[in-house]
Every structure is written in C-alpha cells, then in structure tokens.
Amino acid sequence: MTYETIKMSIDTRGVATLMLARPQVHNAMNGVMWRELLDAVQALEADGSVRVVVLTGEGQTFCAGGDLGYQQAQGGASLDDRLDEARRFSALLHALDSLSKPLIGRINGAAYAGGFSLISVTDVAIGIDTASFAITEARLGLVPAVMLPFVVRRLGMVNARRLFLTARRFPAAEAVSYGLLHASVPPGALDAAVEDEVAHVLRCGPQALRTIKHLIAQASRHGIDVPHEHTIGQVAAMWDSAEGREGILSYFEKRKPAWTTPA
C-alpha cells in the first residue's frame, strides 16, 4: 500500500521501520496518519517475516502531537464523526501496545502531546539527548483522554500528575528518569544505540518473545493473580516446543540457534 503520511520498510533480517513522514509540520498527526499507521501496524502484525519494529520520525522532530488544524476542524463536525475520529486514535494506540513483535522507539527529536503517547506504548525507547518532551494539551484547554492510561502506566501516577497538570517541558535526561526513555544518547549515536537493541532482539526466539509480551500484558493487568495454571502451562509447552528444543540444543552445540518465524 502507498501511504501519504508515513513510510514503512522491512529489511532482510525482518526488521521493520515505521516512520512518521510529515516533517513539514513536525510529524503532527491527523486522521489520515492515524488510519495509515493503524493499517501499517496491522500489516506488520500479520507478516510472519517481521521480527521487530522500529518506530521513528522523519526530520528533526519525532512527533509534535496532534495537528491543530485537523483538531480545529473537528469542532464543526457532528458528534458521530468526532467519536469516529477519536476511536481511530484509540485503536492505533491499542494496536501498537498489543503488537506481538518487540516495538523499539527511535526517538529522533522532540515529542509532545500525542507524540508522547506513541513513546509510551513502545517496549524500548532510545532518544537523542537534545530532545525535549511535554504533555501540552492542558495549555490549550484540551484533554488528553485517549492517551492518558498508557502514559500513566508508563510514568507512574506521581510523575503523570505533575506532567499532565503542569504541561511543563523537560529534557531527555528527565525523560530517562521517569522511564519514558530507556536511554538518551548524542544524535550521532542514535542509530548505533537502536541497532544494539535490535541485535539483542534478533538473538531471541520469535515465538518466545511473542509469548513473553502476552504474559507481561497479563501481569500488568493482574499482577501475581495471573492464573497459575496458565503460567504453568506455558512452561510445560515451552519445554516441548520446537523453538525451546532448538534453543537448548544450540547452547550445548555452541552455535547460534536457527530460529524460524512464527506462522
């Protein structure tokens, strides 16, 4: 599919790059971008050859949030149309959050408002140390309702209250301290740092990663109350799985495992 607002590519290793591509407006998101991102994420989910997804932005900004011109236009739309547009953004965040392949954020510049939420649903986020961040909606009298649960989960209640209720801008080092980013690096070191994360993912069993992401989501919702028989069953299945057998055999044979991608 040809996209207007994003770019997508997949290399021979199964590393997909999903790039926000509206640099002329700092990659601000509109309804078209939400639809295209959702379509791309669903395609990557269904593609068995994809091992890991890197999310980034084109140009000097990762994502400035929602396109204010687009949002202003929603004020004259019917309630049903406004609900449909908001549902698209919600569906996108849930699709990114539940993606069964590891999602790595290559945060190439500033992230504000809705752009902040995209980072909040990544599994790993590496950003440049010159980037700045803010949840800016309250300054404009807007309510960041769809993104709020994902951001609160990422930052914790105490940090989320401060950042949502003050709309203050803060640097990359502070983003690391909150857990929004896992690391910040000089701009010239960003690609190497992201590639290091990708390389670590590619060493892991694809089916194991899919199952682990599912179990992490369950643990996030239920804590230690995840049904015991379910986790016990996962261990029993792992011991007899083709991937588990290959991983253990490769250890004893002192070679790299020959992973096959999940169907």
Rank of each mutant, 00 (worst) to 15 (best):
residue 56 T to K: 12
residue 55 L to W: 10
residue 22 R to H: 01
residue 86 A to S: 15
residue 112 Y to S: 09
residue 85 E to G: 01
residue 36 E to H: 02
residue 44 L to F: 06
residue 105 G to E: 01
residue 94 H to M: 11
residue 48 G to H: 03
residue 27 N to I: 03
residue 104 I to Q: 02
residue 74 Q to D: 10
residue 25 V to R: 10
residue 83 L to Y: 01
residue 30 N to L: 06
residue 111 A to S: 13
residue 115 G to Y: 02
residue 104 I to W: 11
residue 75 G to P: 02
residue 64 A to M: 01
residue 64 A to L: 07
residue 102 P to C: 08
residue 110 A to T: 08
residue 80 D to F: 08
residue 107 I to D: 02
residue 90 S to H: 13
residue 91 A to E: 15
residue 47 D to L: 00
residue 114 G to Y: 04
residue 28 A to I: 03
residue 59 G to L: 07
residue 22 R to C: 07
residue 74 Q to E: 14
residue 44 L to K: 04
residue 72 Q to N: 10
residue 79 L to T: 15
residue 53 V to N: 09
residue 85 E to D: 12
residue 83 L to S: 10
residue 81 D to V: 08
residue 30 N to C: 08
residue 79 L to N: 12
residue 27 N to P: 02
residue 26 H to F: 03
residue 88 R to A: 13
residue 50 V to R: 08
residue 85 E to S: 09
residue 102 P to A: 08
residue 101 K to E: 05
residue 23 P to F: 07
residue 60 Q to E: 13
residue 49 S to N: 13
residue 63 C to N: 14
residue 51 R to V: 08
residue 52 V to G: 07
residue 69 G to E: 14
residue 69 G to N: 09
residue 23 P to G: 04
residue 40 A to C: 07
residue 81 D to Y: 02
residue 58 E to I: 05
residue 98 S to M: 14
residue 97 D to F: 04
residue 49 S to W: 06
residue 64 A to C: 06
residue 64 A to K: 10
residue 96 L to D: 14
residue 99 L to S: 00
residue 71 Q to R: 11
residue 102 P to M: 12
residue 23 P to S: 05
residue 85 E to V: 09
residue 31 G to C: 02
residue 38 L to N: 12
residue 71 Q to P: 01
residue 94 H to P: 05
residue 58 E to V: 10
residue 45 E to D: 10
residue 40 A to S: 05
residue 70 Y to S: 00
residue 79 L to Q: 13
residue 43 A to D: 14
residue 41 V to N: 02
residue 106 R to C: 06
residue 95 A to C: 08
residue 82 R to Y: 00
residue 49 S to D: 15
residue 61 T to D: 12
residue 79 L to S: 15
residue 22 R to T: 13
residue 105 G to S: 03
residue 24 Q to S: 12
residue 52 V to F: 11
residue 60 Q to H: 09
residue 71 Q to K: 05
residue 89 F to E: 12
residue 84 D to S: 15
residue 83 L to P: 01
residue 77 A to K: 04
residue 102 P to Y: 15
residue 115 G to T: 04
residue 39 D to T: 11
